[in-house]
Structure formats: structure tokens, C-alpha cells
């Protein structure tokens, strides 16, 4: 399902020109970015249309996208720096992190394009969190943080769904990123010899990372008591649903890595 290609027709000519010229500029950069830019143009146009239709303030949607961009910039920088560190990532799994990092780069480009002037500057980051983690010296620490960032990213996008109900096109685009974060998370977890999904207990997760998994041990979902209804084990029930994190919860997790 692509976004409405006719949405451009409903925009003011100067807006169309602005979007089109930005798209053309990006198209010159390369194939990957051009594909991203194509999606972004439709995204931006559809988002504008959605805002106009809902009559609601676009601030809420902009805030969601800025929040998403902060997380994506964090992830993109994390993989970029990890891949640059000689000897950190074993050769046979470099392709995994090149793939994930490439996706995060695309998410950043997409969100920056969608936000335009509202994208702001990339934050200054400290992946040691003030010396708490030997992130780029230990592959185990790097993997732990990769898992934490991906599981957080997935839960963060999910947590913003209620704020995008009035902008279904934006919601759809956010979901197409959300499930990719889940794919990343599952593979990184498997590299740590964990299941791809999230059980009740989190072995090998230090206290500093524990908030990533807060509130995921529920067996009652939306008023349905699955313990009573289903004969499944507790872990299977809690694994079957990925609960959201609020913006505040996510920023508390990401905060130690953001200097400014």
C-alpha cells in the first residue's frame, strides 16, 4: 500500500515545488536515498493533508516524529561508530550490523526529510553513558546495548500509536518502521543466545538496562485474562504481546546516552 500519490495535487504550488526540488536534490545523492526521498514526499504530502483534514494541531505529530528522529539518530550513530571500531564486531556478523545500521540511516533520512526545518540538529552522544558502559571496547557490551536500543525503539514506536490515530497515513509509515525495529531486535537477541521475543525474565540484563523491559510481564491484555483463557505457559502469553513504552519512559532510558 503506497500513500496517496495524488496528495500533491491538493497542495499549494509553491509547496509542491519545494517538496519536488528537495526530492530532486536527494535523488542525485544515490539510489537508497532517492527511494527514501520518494517515500518522504508522499509522506509529507499525506501528513499535511491529514493535518488539514483533522483540523487538529500538527504539533503532536511533529513531536512524535522528532522523538522518533532522536532515537533513530542515536541508533544510527551507535552502529556507525561500532562498525568503525577495529576488531569490535566479528567478521561473520558485520553484515548484520551493516544491515541494521543502514536501515537506521534510512529512517533518519526519512524523518529529517519529513520534518524539514523542524528536524533540528543531531544531539551530541556518549555511548559510555558517562563511563557506565565499555561500549566500543567490548563486543558483549555492544550487543547488550544494541538489544536495548532495538527493543526500546520497537516499544517507543508502539507507544506513539495513540498519538497518531488522527493521522492514519503517518501512523502507517511509523508502523512500517516499527516492525523493522522488531526484526532488528529479534536478531540481535538471537546473537546473545536469547529468544527473539521477550519473556518474563531478562537474564543477563543489568539494572541499568532493566527499564527497557518494564511492564512486559502482563498476562491480562485489554481486559482479557489470557492466563485463564489460554492453556499457554506464562512466557508464551507475555511474549505474544509487545507492550508500549511512553515517551517519558523512553527518554529516561535514552537520556544517559544523550549529552545535549
Amino acid at each position: 500500500m503506497r500513500l496517496n500519490p495524488n496528495a500533491l495535487a491538493n497542495l499549494e504550488p509553491e509547496v509542491v515545488n519545494q517538496i519536488t526540488s528537495r526530492r530532486d536534490a536527494l535523488r542525485r545523492i544515490g539510489g537508497t536515498l532517492a527511494a527514501t526521498a520518494g517515500a518522504s514526499v508522499a509522506f509529507t504530502a499525506a501528513a499535511r493533508e491529514a493535518f488539514a483534514q483533522s483540523g487538529g494541531p500538527p504539533e503532536q505529530v511533529v513531536e512524535v516524529l522528532q522523538f522518533a528522529l532522536t532515537l533513530e539518530r542515536l541508533e544510527a550513530a551507535f552502529y556507525s561508530m561500532g562498525l568503525e571500531e577495529d576488531g569490535l564486531i566479528p567478521g561473520d556478523v558485520r553484515v548484520v550490523f551493516e544491515t541494521i545500521g543502514g536501515h537506521e540511516d534510512e529512517h533518519v533520512a526519512f524523518l529529517e526529510e519529513a520534518l524539514g526545518d523542524s528536524a533540528g540538529e543531531a544531539p551530541e552522544l556518549d555511548f559510555t553513558a558517562g563511563g557506565m558502559f565499555d561500549t566500543f571496547e567490548s563486543y558483549d557490551t555492544f550487543l547488550l546495548l544494541a538489544q536495548a536500543f532495538e527493543d526500546t525503539g520497537q516499544r517507543a514506536y508502539r507507544g506513539q500509536a495513540p498519538n497518531l490515530v488522527e493521522a492514519p497515513e503517518v501512523l502507517t509509515q511509523a508502523l512500517t518502521i516499527h516492525s523493522v525495529e522488531a526484526r532488528h531486535a529479534a536478531l540481535v537477541r538471537s546473537l546473545r543466545d536469547l529468544q527473539g521475543w521477550i519473556p518474563q525474565d531478562q537474564p543477563g540484563v543489568p539494572a541499568a538496562v532493566a527499564p527497557v523491559y518494564a511492564g512486559m510481564d502482563l498476562t491480562e491484555k485489554y481486559g482479557v485474562d489470557l492466563m485463564e483463557l489460554s492453556g499457554a505457559e506464562n512466557d508464551r502469553i507475555t511474549e505474544a504481546f509487545d507492550e508500549p513504552l511512553t515517551m517519558e519512559e523512553v527518554l529516561a532510558i535514552a537520556g544517559p546516552f544523550i549529552v545535549s
Binding site: 508502539r158 500509536a161 516492525s179 522488531a182 531486535a185
Partner: peptide, 18 residues
Amino acid sequence: ALMAAGDIVSVEARHASV
């Protein structure tokens, strides 16, 4: 239903990945 679907879709994605 939308929120529940959001909780479920990422689990399907985790399955697909694994």
C-alpha cells in the same frame, strides 16, 4: 483493537526475523 494490533504486529516481525 488498534493498540492490541500494535502489540501483536511486532511479535509477528520478531517471528519473521528469527
